[in-house]
């Protein structure tokens, strides 16, 4: 795709974490063991889109988000942003870029310092990065951000502390803190999963609205495919450190081609009791990312797996325009018909 401008380009990204072992185990074998949290992941994020990274716990989606923001260095691969490779630049250069790259965390109860007032929580990033000239300027910028996330009127909230706010209001403070530096790109890591349903919709709408207002681009990390469909433009499904399928969010969910995606989609509960559908689940459990299975990583749990799946890693193939899946045996709804 060349029609839209690419903002972030991720290539062959890997993040391995060393496994710390006991003294005796180290004597027995010197070989270092690694957890392959993210194992060769590539994708592009286009300007002003919501790119969703979805998968179950432990699939590496959060680690991918953190690595992209250089919060933890990758083991291998490149992340290109604005003509720079974030894996190669110096600390000073990275520091200068920080205001442009922000993150929103999952738990608004834990991501705000309880001892800082709302003013200080939101203002910190501006002060640390020397983005404001005076105290008045600082106050002005904080108030503007608060209005943009509808903490209104700001005077009512600005000198309060997190414990005096509801969950939804806290999450809005977290969002205000992210947008106050006028970022270009935000990693939103499960921003609504801790919130009640009635508040969730409001935060999703707010995130969408800010795209236009702030000329934003999101990497939206979630395990919830329903909210992904609501907010996302494109989606990538991760399993055990790898992307297995990606494309326009509606197409991937309506017409999944990887066997794993198909099962994952079927497992999602649907808020309509008149709709009869079978929730499926893959057999067994996710294998350890220390020794991931050879070939296709999903093969030990896949109903269609054969010899090829066990030995050869499937390449990405274009299923339909802009929709790619890495599976030797594309999913066909007929598979489930006779059950």
């Amino acid at each position: 795709m060349t029609s839209a401008e690419t903002l972030i380009e991720v290539r062959n990204l890997k993040k391995y974490f060393p496994v710390r072992r006991g003294f005796v185990a180290q004597l027995v074998s010197r070989e270092q063991i690694w957890v392959k949290a993210v194992d060769d992941v590539s994708f592009d994020i286009r300007k002003n889109e919501v790119f969703v990274l979805a998968g179950e716990s432990g699939c590496g989606k959060t680690t991918t988000g953190r690595v992209i923001l250089n919060l933890t260095p990758p083991s291998d691969g490149s992340i290109r942003y604005g003509g720079l490779d974030l894996t190669e630049i110096t600390k000073q250069e990275m520091k200068a870029l920080r205001p442009k790259l922000q993150i929103i965390f999952q738990d608004p109860y834990e991501s705000l310092n309880p001892r800082l007032s709302i003013h200080d929580s939101i203002g910190e990033a501006l002060q640390v990065n020397r983005l404001v000239a005076s105290r008045e300027d600082l106050l002005q910028r904080i108030k503007m951000a608060m209005e943009d996330v509808r903490l209104y009127p700001p005077e009512d909230f600005i000198y309060r502390y997190p414990h005096m706010l509801s969950g939804g209001q806290r999450q809005r403070v977290v969002i205000a803190r992210a947008i106050v530096t006028q970022p270009e790109f935000i990693v939103a890591d499960e921003p609504v999963s801790m919130l009640d349903a009635s508040i969730r919709a409001e935060i999703l709408h707010l995130l969408k609205e800010l795209i236009k207002k702030y000329d934003l681009t999101y990497l939206y990390i979630t395990h919830d495919l329903a909210s992904a469909r609501y907010i996302g433009d494109r989606i990538a499904i991760m399993y055990l450190g790898k992307i297995v399928e990606y494309g326009p969010v509606g197409r991937v969910i309506d017409n999944p081609k990887h066997q794993y995606t198909a099962i994952l989609v079927s497992a999602v509960p649907i808020p309509d009791p008149t709709l009869i559908h079978t929730r499926r689940a893959p057999v067994g459990e996710v294998p350890s990312p220390i020794n991931p299975p050879p070939g296709c990583r999903f093969h030990p749990r896949c109903p269609q797996a054969d010899e090829q799946c066990r030995q050869e890693e499937p390449p990405f193939k274009e299923v339909e325009p802009n929709h790619f899946a890495a599976c030797w045996h594309w999913f066909d709804p007929k598979q489930w018909e006779d059950e």
């Binding site: 349903a197 999703l204 709408h205 909210s227 469909r229 609501y230 989609v265 999602v268 649907i270 808020p271």
Partner: peptide, 11 residues
């Protein structure tokens, strides 16, 4: 207020 996997009108 609950999004559905099958696609939703405005929440």
């Amino acid at each position: 207020s609950v999004p559905s996997l099958l696609g939703t009108e405005q929440l």
